[in-house]
């Protein structure tokens, strides 16, 4: 029975890592996607400085998600990654461009424009690819034996394109709300505008994805739309509407911190919805978390470390955020 419990705990830890990643790197990538709309000069520098000290830590959650998946659910790692070969490769290349742009743009005034474009392109490609990955997972992966058996374009579908776009709107919303929180003046004014448009786009995307999902798999349909499950699941869309309303109101009232929290709330609900759809599968409709689990000795060994270290990591991550708290100062000698 220990094995079963450990597996559920590990599923929760990996879900936590993915959520932490989406929340934290989401606003970094969102700012990257907003970059072309932010005027060159002081405003861009400020936007960049608002995330420069923390993006690296944020991105590390993605490595924990990948590494943790390999360790706790090697079969899932071994099936999902080849199945999503093209989008994941695109994501990695996007993250490379985005990551080095942080440093390079300061090193090379003549080509700052180029690295700003790389920052945008990298952020966009990485986000879109992550959204596509999600959609491709939800729509199902071909498996035979212990490996992926589809071709290298199986991930490509209208649904995965839709989730790709949806995630872009979501990250842009997080990015705009982050800027509202961390900046002031004209950049903040702009950020309010971006956040309003992004909220509307995101709601449309959520609606479209929610409408399409139940028709991908029998199980999703059963969980969301059939009696009596619908009674249990209906609060999720209702709460989504309420939070969207609160978010919109906070933007109109020009609150500074609330929009970011509401945006996180929207993401939280989407993730809960996702959980309702796929639980207890790790590869939706194909492989459960127990089938993919590594042996209890592996999971237990890691759990000891994770139980001690994750709180420590959260503590010093909080410290790093605390050091750079408040509005980004407008510095510099540029």
């Amino acid at each position: 029975m220990t094995g079963l419990d450990l597996t559920v705990i590990w599923a929760a830890i990996i879900a936590f890592a993915i959520i932490a990643y989406v929340v934290m790197d989401g606003f970094d990538l969102g700012i990257g996607m907003l970059f072309p709309r932010i005027p060159v000069g002081k405003q861009r520098d400020t936007a960049m400085n608002s995330i420069a000290p923390i993006w690296d830590g944020n991105e590390t959650w993605l490595v924990l998600g990948g590494g943790g998946l390999m360790a706790a659910f090697p079969l899932a790692y071994a099936v999902i990654l080849p199945a999503l070969y093209a989008p994941l490769t695109a994501m990695l290349l996007g993250l490379i461009l985005r990551g080095v742009a942080f440093e390079y743009r300061w090193r090379d005034e003549r080509h700052r424009e180029t690295w700003d474009r790389a920052f945008f392109a990298g952020s966009f490609v990485a986000t879109f690819a992550q959204g596509v990955t999600l959609g491709a997972l939800l729509q199902g992966i071909s498996i035979s034996g212990r490996s992926y058996s589809g071709g290298w374009w199986e991930w490509l579908s209208p649904f995965s394109m839709l989730t790709g776009i949806g995630l872009c709107t979501g990250y842009v919303l997080l990015g705009s709300c982050w800027l509202i929180m961390k900046t002031e003046g004209p950049l903040q004014d702009k950020a309010y505008g971006y956040a309003r448009s992004a909220t509307i786009s995101l709601l449309l995307a959520i609606a479209a994805v929610s409408a399409a999902t139940p028709f991908l798999e029998e199980k999703y349909h059963e969980r969301w739309l059939e009696y009596p499950n619908i009674i249990a699941t209906a609060p999720v869309p209702v709460a989504t509407l309420i939070i969207a309303f609160l978010l919109f109101r906070s933007l109109i009232k020009r609150l500074e911190i609330a929009p970011f929290l509401y945006a996180l709330g929207l993401f939280g609900l989407c993730i809960i919805g996702l959980g309702i759809s796929i639980w207890p599968d790790i590869i939706p409709g194909r492989i459960t978390i127990w089938e993919a689990a590594s042996p209890p000795s592996s999971q237990l060994f890691m759990l000891v470390g994770a139980a001690i270290l994750v709180p420590v990591i959260l503590a010093y991550t909080a410290y790093a955020y605390w050091v750079f708290r408040g509005k980004v100062e407008n510095e510099g000698y540029h």
Partner: peptide
């Protein structure tokens, strides 16, 4: 992936 599946644990 085969290596990862086999050696992952």
């Amino acid at each position: 992936s085969v290596f990862s599946d086999r050696a992952g644990p």
